[in-house]
Design a protein around this nucleic acid. Structure first.
Lengths: 235, 235
DNA sequence: TTGAATTCTGTGGTCTAACCACACTGTAGA
DNA sequence: TCTACAGTGTGGTTAGACCACAGAATTCAA
């Protein structure tokens, strides 16, 4: 064990606190100085461990005092996985086409198993109404992202939801950049909104197979129109 | 941008180097002291950024000099995603059952699309022979993990491969602990090896549908026997 | 008594300047 | 020629200082 780097010891200690239930969601870690003294390491090493946990979406660090202060245990695997995937896309190790393909896989699966009546599905419906009123592209895309996440959540598998959200986040820059090059945004927007309605209707009619099929076509169609997915432009 | 923490600036700079292709797989980052001076920040902040990249599986840091020295760009998304998921499982936010379900989804998909004749498939076959000779459980499980990864790689989607490997890694402790409680390891081992052969045969016979079905039953059967998946024991 | 201004306290954020262990490189000496 | 050893540059770790921030406690004047 002594061949382990110091910050890894701290990580191990914190993970044990989590596993043992001594540290739960919403709970606060001891202050950095306190942890350093307790574990007999420098504050620097404690901070390196906290940085890693923050990058993993396990904690959130806040200065000052009060509710937002201190290092708090959170649960945001989606954004963390997204950052990791985005970096690996940057290294050219993960092709954008594979990301899109995986997203189709996960979202089709989720659409097929989405349960009617769950809160997430009602939220998805509300988001569609908001998208009809979206004043600009960025607002539309933000609502679109939330719609897809809500749809995935309706399937009730938190791992699939998190991964699906991360995949979208990993290539968000690609998508939002390429929308600017679309020939006719109004036409695309109208089509996308109609497809969303069709997907939601299929789910509400308990036609999971059709919902899955529509979702796959919806995602592949969007990236194909934007020029991503098959050819892999890669800037 | 000035409201960004210092280590995030360093991360941003390194990500840009990767995106622009100035830093590629196998390449070396400047020394920590050099980066600190170049970006006009402290070495502490540079190190926090490197720690995050290391946790993401994007770089590997090595002391001394020579081939293993310095901070080198690597591509190990699987282990990084696995650590992240494992931590989130520890917070009770991601149920083990959801992990298993997602693994079934991804591996079934991969088995159905595995391409006959690719090197990964031949490696998978070789691993099965080694498993017949495995002297102990740990060796068997290690080879088993490599077999499943090889099978997933045969589908040709690196994102699915990475995610599948990470899911297995995230609950590795659960699986290896529970194998000790199996009533008859020899019987289980024999069954698992037979199932592996059947899966590989289905793939080689271009019967993707059957391969997917067998993989799903194989994984679900193992976790069911070990007591994980449905009931979610949670320690 | 009230309320505004001030100080106190504890949080994470950042920086500097050391020293260590390590692994290779070059050089001096046998 | 070979060996021993000092030199160099890498990440790993530490101690100690200072900052900005935000809430809590205190002070003091109206």
């Amino acid at each position: 064990m002594s061949d382990m780097r110091t910050h890894e010891l701290v990580l191990q200690w914190i993970e044990k606190q989590l596993s043992d239930g001594d540290l739960t969601l919403g709970g606060r870690l001891p202050g950095e100085r306190a942890m350093a003294e307790q574990l007999q390491v420098s504050r620097t090493s404690v901070r390196e461990a906290v940085r890693i946990l923050e990058a993993m979406g396990v904690v959130r660090a806040g200065v000052g005092s009060g509710k937002d202060a201190g290092t708090v245990v959170i649960a945001e695997p989606g954004s963390a996985l997204g950052s990791t995937l985005r970096l690996h896309v940057a290294t050219r190790h993960l092709p954008v086409a594979d990301i899109v393909e995986t997203r189709v896989l996960l979202e089709s699966w989720a659409a097929e198993r989405a349960q009617v009546g769950v809160p997430a599905l009602e939220a998805a419906a509300a988001l569609l109404d908001q998208m009809d009123e979206a004043p600009d592209i960025d607002t539309f895309l933000a609502l679109d992202a939330r719609f897809h996440v809500a749809l995935a959540q309706a399937a009730g598998n938190s791992v699939v939801s998190a991964m699906m959200a991360s995949l979208r986040g990993a290539i968000e820059n690609y998508a939002s950049t390429l929308t600017e090059n679309l020939p006719d945004w109004n036409a695309t927007s109208t089509r996308l909104r109609a497809e969303h309605r069709a997907i939601l209707n299929a789910v509400n009619n308990n036609d999971g197979g059709k919902a899955a099929q529509l979702v796959a076509a919806h995602i592949q169609g969007f990236y194909a129109e934007a020029g991503v997915g098959a050819g892999v432009p890669r800037i």
